[in-house]
Simulated scan of single mutants.
Amino acid sequence: MDADTATGELVGGRLVLLAGGTSAAGRACARALLDAGARVVVVGSDAERLAAVRSALPGVAVERSDLTDESAVIAMRERVQALHGTVDGVLHLVGGWRGGGGLAGQSDADFAFLSRGLTALRHVSRAFDDDLRASTAGRLAIVSSTAVARPLAGGANYAAVKAASEAWVRAVAQGYAKAARDVGREATAAAAIFRVRSLEGLEDALASAFVGLWDDTAAAVNDVVIELAAGS
């Protein structure tokens, strides 16, 4: 997305929520959003990590919430709306890795652990669906994996959960487009997928690409898969 040919609205002044945003990738995205003039809320479950984010990035607001608990997510949304207003963007960074051992090594315990990311995505995307649809430039994005396109036996659990997460986001994207068509107006909300082999070393690339979602129209970035690699 080239800023010279940008046709959409920029992210400045908008409220963006980073779900599971206490990681290095989350901090990079928060920093890029702040630099672009956005307001940022980082949500996580660990109080110490949230405090570290707030110390490193004083302009960021933080919220503690268990994103796998639907009632906790609803309560978090109400706090965010009361303190900061409605949300214009959500980046879902809840995830993790467990794998190895071939197909026989794909345990139910590991699948349950990985599935927490999908559960959190479902809760967060539903909780903020009205906000993103009502925004003049709503954006939802997740970080997925290249394993979806080429799954390996030793990462079957991981690839299956990532594929399900992508399917969920694509369904959200279809809902955004249909809602706009049904009322005869141009779409303003978009849902996109970032795919990486590994986020290590790509934190800044992810941050730039996420901020760039506001530099295009919703129609241009809705239901798209953006692959990030070294040098991107």
Rank of each mutant, 00 (worst) to 15 (best):
Arg77Leu: 06
Ala56Phe: 06
Phe210Trp: 05
Leu132Val: 09
Phe194Tyr: 09
Ser135Phe: 06
Ser145Cys: 11
Leu152His: 12
Asp131Pro: 07
Val43Arg: 03
Ala219His: 12
Ala28Asn: 10
Ala36Trp: 01
Arg98Phe: 09
Glu166His: 04
Ser145Ala: 15
Glu186Pro: 03
Glu203Gly: 06
Arg49Asn: 10
Arg150His: 12
Ala51Met: 07
Val172His: 01
Leu114Val: 13
Glu203His: 09
Val62Met: 03
Ile193Ser: 02
Asp69His: 00
Ala24Arg: 14
Arg54Leu: 00
Gly44Trp: 01
Val11Cys: 06
Leu152Gly: 13
Gly8Trp: 01
Asp130Leu: 11
Ala51Phe: 00
Asp88Gln: 03
Met1Leu: 14
Gly13His: 08
Ser198Met: 08
Asp131Asn: 09
Tyr158Glu: 05
Val148Ser: 09
Gly201Arg: 10
Asp35Cys: 06
Trp214Asp: 07
Val42Leu: 07
Gly99Phe: 06
Thr146Leu: 15
Glu166Pro: 06
Leu152Val: 09
Gly155Arg: 07
Ser107Thr: 14
Ala109Asp: 03
Ala179Trp: 03
Leu34His: 03
Leu228Asn: 12
Leu206Pro: 04
Gly117Ser: 12
Arg197Leu: 11
Met1Lys: 11
Leu103Gly: 01
Leu121Ser: 05
Ala219Pro: 07
Gly95Asn: 10
Leu118Asn: 02
Ala25Cys: 15
Ala205Thr: 11
Ala153Tyr: 01
Gly201Phe: 10
Arg195Val: 02
Ala167Met: 13
Ala218Ser: 11
Arg139Thr: 02
Asn157Tyr: 03
Gly100His: 08
Asp88Arg: 00
Val53Pro: 07
Leu121Thr: 07
Val169Tyr: 09
Ala187Pro: 13
Val80Trp: 06
Ala61Cys: 10
Val40Ile: 00
Leu140Met: 10
Ala171Ser: 14
Gly89Phe: 07
Val224Tyr: 08
Leu83Asp: 15
Val94Cys: 13
Lys162His: 14
Gly85His: 10
Ala160Pro: 06
Cys29Leu: 11
Asp108Cys: 12
Val60Cys: 00
Thr68Gly: 08
Lys178Gln: 15
Ala137Val: 04
Thr136Tyr: 09
Ala207Tyr: 05
Asp215Gln: 12
Ser115Leu: 05
Val169Trp: 05
Gln81Phe: 10
Ile226Ala: 10
Asp130Arg: 13
Ser165Glu: 14
Phe128Pro: 05
Glu9Trp: 00
Arg122Asn: 14
Leu33Phe: 08
Ile74Met: 13
Trp97Lys: 08
Glu9Asn: 04
Asp69Trp: 05
Gly20Asp: 06
Ala153Phe: 02
Leu199Gln: 10
Asp216Tyr: 09
Val196Lys: 02
Asp66Pro: 05
Cys29Gly: 00
Pro151Ile: 06
Asp182Gln: 13
Arg64Thr: 12
Glu48His: 10
Asp131Ala: 08
Leu67Tyr: 03
